[in-house]
Simulated assay, not measured.
Amino acid sequence: MTPKDETELADAVAQAKGPLRIRGGGTRPVGRVAAADTLSVAGLAGVTLYEPGALTIVARAGTPLADVEDILSAEGQRLPFEPMDHRRLLGTEGTPTIGGVVAANVSGPRRVQAGACRDSLIGVRFVDGGGTVITNGGRVMKNVTGYDLVKLMAGSWGTLGVLTEVSFKVLPAAEAVATVLIGGLDAGQAVAVMTRALRSPFEVSGAAYAATGPDGSRVAMLRIEGFAESVRYRAEKLVALLGDAGEIRIESNPDRVRRIWTWVRDAERFAGTPGDVWRLSVKPTDAARVADRLGAEDLLLDWGGSLIWAEVPPGTDLRGRLAGIAGHATRVRGAGGGLPAFHPEPAPLAALAAGLRAKFDPRGILNPGIMG
């Protein structure tokens, strides 16, 4: 089913006789949905409001992400949270949609400075499991009472409702960008360097490390963005601060810098490789322990070490191997030997999540089982 507008979508949900698999662009097939009819939001596309002066954009959920980014770019603006494109990592085709970005709370390297997708999201419209259209938030940042549905919908993976429209605060694009590259570090040393950089006054907007970087060697990557003179000054000051860390240089060619951070953002290190790929959220100080526990150091660290991408042999119980290290582990690619893709929730949180799903989808028809 591909409804052409919100009314048709609400009718389709209200009249559904069984489970529905909610589909945006089909580029992020994470988790498993029980046998279900597919309900696509691709017919709900288009930017409905854009006010560059107010730094606000509103778009229907099926709008291609690239369309939103092109409209913003034409006015020298951007989505602050730098959403990832999963297609190379997962080997999928299709077109990423802005609704899919929200449903999965997709956030890239700039999260360390600008926050996650949910932090820029200021309004949503969605259809709940009974076919009712619900609106929450709006076109300005404000406090809320009761359920903060804007935040709840971000990262709910279509289990609370089918998004039909989303609203964002946006930011001006950077005039210039540079990346400080430091070679020869292991994971523990890289986390220490990234921590120093993020705690510095130089406004680092990306902090990542790879044992096999874009050029095949170990490298820590620290990004600085802003006005050209400010970027130059802050990059030089950061080099002076970290000068004792190892082999260090500044990359200021905008095309090369953009390529580096696309590589990090999209976890391209593992594109086309044969293993299961996991996305781990841990304390940065535990990143080296994760590397040791997995018996290898070939990981991709982002967000200063608090986000780790890891590839393991198919079917590996990665959560079992990392027992005792606090955090979350989500299997993004691979069958995982039948293990659930999403990290099991602690009992109190699971009860709260079940209560929310019962409230918004009492029939249990929206993406059932996807997070199980």
Rank of each mutant, 00 (worst) to 15 (best):
V257Y: 03
Q113W: 14
D244C: 08
A35W: 04
R87L: 01
G31H: 06
A347E: 15
D37R: 15
T92V: 14
G62Y: 10
T92R: 08
G115Q: 11
D286S: 14
L152N: 02
G213M: 07
T95W: 08
V162Y: 00
P52K: 11
L222N: 00
G336V: 06
T316K: 02
A36R: 09
E345W: 11
E175C: 05
A173P: 03
A296I: 02
G94P: 13
A358M: 08
K151Q: 10
L89Y: 04
L9W: 10
A103Q: 11
E75W: 11
G305W: 11
R87S: 04
G25R: 13
T63V: 13
F360S: 08
A296W: 05
I248A: 02
L39P: 00
I260W: 12
D37M: 12
L72W: 12
D302K: 02
L301K: 00
D70G: 11
A61R: 11
E82G: 06
F81G: 04
A10P: 10
L49W: 11
I224H: 01
V112I: 13
A74V: 13
V277L: 02
E268N: 13
A176Y: 04
A176M: 06
A210Y: 08
F126S: 05
R333L: 02
D298W: 06
L349W: 06
R232Y: 05
